[in-house]
């Protein structure tokens, strides 16, 4: 058995990792909940955002600063991609959308490969090896920052969805497209806004991830596999589900790393995943079928 201090440290570290999982998953589940598509380009967009943050850092801008323009830029990019590529190319057919996003991810990854090769790059930030001392446990500063930023983004997203007309229109379109059209909501526009918000969340995740991680043209894939698990676990389309699910998966991964050994950390994720789905097939926060 491990001492309580070590277990608590593992739980806290898991929550910090889980916050980034939550952010990546919220973006995925929001797009699924509103557009009813699985966005296969999710990982590639995350990767692209990490490259953007990497080159902003090369130009001398810290990711915590560059997020202020990378996130809006990715919102605009996401909006444009949905409105003028995915939407028109899919003609409203779900199978087409699936293939279009898959194609998009292949294009993005290969453009990045062609431009930057498959080298793995990382950055040095002054706070890269700083820690937060809680007395009984040291927490890595970049991850504490990532956790804090995720909380801010979650709060902003919550305010947007519950307090603004645009946010309410997003929720309306998610559940009742025809009803939304008939009160004058422009469904095509709301689809693009939602996709843009998803891309902006990924951009934020990229900027907080980069100081403690690395970037190469395939880096998004690892996060997206976890994000898919989180989204199904939390309940497809549920934003609170993705938040809680992300944190939960982070803790589970950290604890199973502690008990089964670091290399088997991901084993715990899929054990929990299977267990939850056996008991609740629609996920933790999913509507009952």
């Amino acid at each position: 058995m491990f001492s309580p201090d070590i277990v608590i440290a593992a739980v806290l570290n898991g929550l910090l990792t889980g916050a980034v999982y939550a952010l990546v998953s919220v973006a995925l589940t929001l797009v699924y909940g509103v557009l009813h598509i699985i966005n296969f380009a999710h990982g590639a967009i995350l990767t692209a955002a990490m490259f953007a943050a990497f080159f902003a850092h090369q130009a001398g801008i810290d990711p915590l600063l560059s997020v202020l323009f990378i996130a809006p830029a990715f919102f605009a990019l996401g909006y444009a991609v949905q409105r003028w590529i995915i939407g028109p190319a899919s003609h409203g057919d779900d199978r087409n959308i699936l293939l279009v996003t898959l194609g998009l991810s292949i294009v993005i990854e290969n453009v990045l490969l062609a431009a930057f090769r498959s080298d793995t790059r990382s950055i040095d930030v002054p706070y890269g090896f700083s820690v937060v001392d809680l007395g009984f446990v040291f927490l890595p500063m970049p991850r504490v920052i990532a956790f804090g930023v995720t909380c801010v983004v979650a709060a902003l997203l919550w305010a947007l969805l519950t307090r603004t007309d645009t946010g309410k229109a997003i929720r309306a379109v998610a559940k009742e497209k025809l009803g939304a059209s008939l009160v004058g909501i422009d469904v095509t526009h709301i689809y693009a806004v939602t996709f843009g918000i998803g891309a902006a969340c990924l951009a934020v995740a990229a900027c907080v991830l980069l100081p403690s991680y690395y970037v190469n043209p395939r880096v998004g894939t690892a996060y997206v596999l976890v994000a898919f698990t989180v989204v199904v676990l939390g309940g497809m389309g549920s934003v609170p589900g993705a938040m809680i699910g992300g944190l939960l998966i982070g803790v589970v991964e950290s604890l199973s790393g502690l008990y089964f050994g670091e290399s088997l950390g991901q084993l715990g994720i899929f054990l929990i995943f299977i267990l939850v789905l056996l008991v609740r097939p629609t996920g933790l926060f999913g509507a009952r079928a």
């Binding site: 007309d165 309410k168 229109a169 929720r171 309306a172 559940k175 009742e176 025809l178 009803g179 939304a180 008939l182 009160v183 004058g184 909501i185």
Partner: peptide, 29 residues
């Protein structure tokens, strides 16, 4: 809708997981 021709559809098509007041507020979107 902006011109003032408003269609209350068959089957109601309300927003089921939003509150009554939010539904009404969206009527003036």
């Amino acid at each position: 809708v902006a011109a003032g021709l408003i269609h209350v559809p068959e089957g109601r098509r309300i927003f089921p997981d939003m509150s009554v007041q939010e539904n009404l507020e969206l009527g003036s979107f």
